[in-house]
Design a protein around this nucleic acid. Structure first.
Lengths: 180, 180
DNA sequence: TTGACATTTGACCTATTGGTAGGTAAGATA
DNA sequence: TATCTTACCTACCAATAGGTCAAATGTCAA
């Protein structure tokens, strides 16, 4: 991404660590080591770890929006769009990562109410975009089916992570697509 | 469960905490407070936290087997069995918990290889049982569809946890069932 | 060149982490 | 009776957690 912007580098590394080991699975010291900036400097940008998580989600939602816009401009075919959605997350799975939503949802117990709202927002973003494409496909109850779609893809990432196997993700998502 | 057996009480509480906040989201001190036994006493039963996690998964697999046997004896109708499978986990979701598999999969980064194998085993147990019932239903590729089923249910729990809403889980699982 | 502000640091803090050392009372076993 | 084992305990440990603060450094416009 950006080599220059320190905020982004901090967020990149934090996101990586969250996706690999959950919100409680890393510390500011870990980020410090990886980025080469001292621990107090990280506190300068993100006073508390909760601040970090919140900004992580806000940025993630922006990234999602950009991703969806890119997908929309890539093809008009809704079926192809769903496939690209799945391929988008395959990149994460390949690196042994989870979607940020899944990673944070699992640790929701240690997240502030505000963060949980932002997490719900991110999931809503996904459902909304998916529902739009399911509507074009004339699927009945697109909102419900969108929720099913999101759940399955998140679950597929979870299984792929457990098995440490990209094929697990791809196979499940393949079968999911065939239902639509 | 068992009021008497201390090992079980420790595991019960540990499992609760893992399902609520992940493997890194609780400490021996938390269990200590809840059970009323000192921290070193917990180390007496489970020398390290990894030992605890391993036994948690081994017990979980036994519980799953018992559950499946109970489901098998409850009804011969495979469709009804799938419904009961979903209801089984709804109890967890109602308490704001995740399936142990989902909770640990998200924190897989901080789990030993042995534990990850046990985690895979637990997921295999689920897939195997589901595949048996899908076979009876004459579903093609029952193993693949079983993986899809597991992923969706795990994902539904994740979403329900994020939204803190049992209905989210029920709706997704309802729609899942209608695909079979 | 200076002042103002942004950025980064070393030194430090308190609480908690997972874990250990050593001991003790109650049974079981020899 | 002597010894061993189980099931706990108190007291403690080094390391790490998230976080603070005053001082130093960098940047840039007036």
């Amino acid at each position: 991404m950006s080599q220059t912007n320190i905020t982004d580098r901090l967020l990149d590394e934090a996101q990586r660590l969250v996706q690999l080991g959950g919100f409680n699975g890393f510390s500011y010291a870990d980020i410090s080591k990886a980025i080469g900036i001292t621990k107090p400097s990280i506190h300068y940008y993100f006073p508390t770890k909760q601040d970090l998580a919140l900004e992580l989600l806000r940025r993630y939602r922006r990234q999602l929006q950009n991703g969806f816009e890119w997908l929309n401009s890539s093809t008009q075919d809704p079926k192809a769009r769903l496939t690209l959605y799945i391929q988008f997350f395959a990149g994460l799975v390949k690196d042994g990562r989870l979607c940020l939503c899944a990673a944070l949802a699992a640790d929701a117990g240690s997240l502030s109410a505000q963060i949980q709202l932002e997490l719900q927002g991110a999931l809503e973003d996904k459902k909304t975009w998916l529902a739009q494409n399911l509507t074009v496909l004339k699927i009945s109850e697109p909102n419900r089916q969108a929720a099913l779609f999101v759940a399955t893809v998140e679950g597929a990432m979870l299984l792929a992570r457990a098995y440490n196997d990209l094929a697990t993700y791809n196979t499940i998502c393949q079968d999911l697509l065939e239902h639509f």
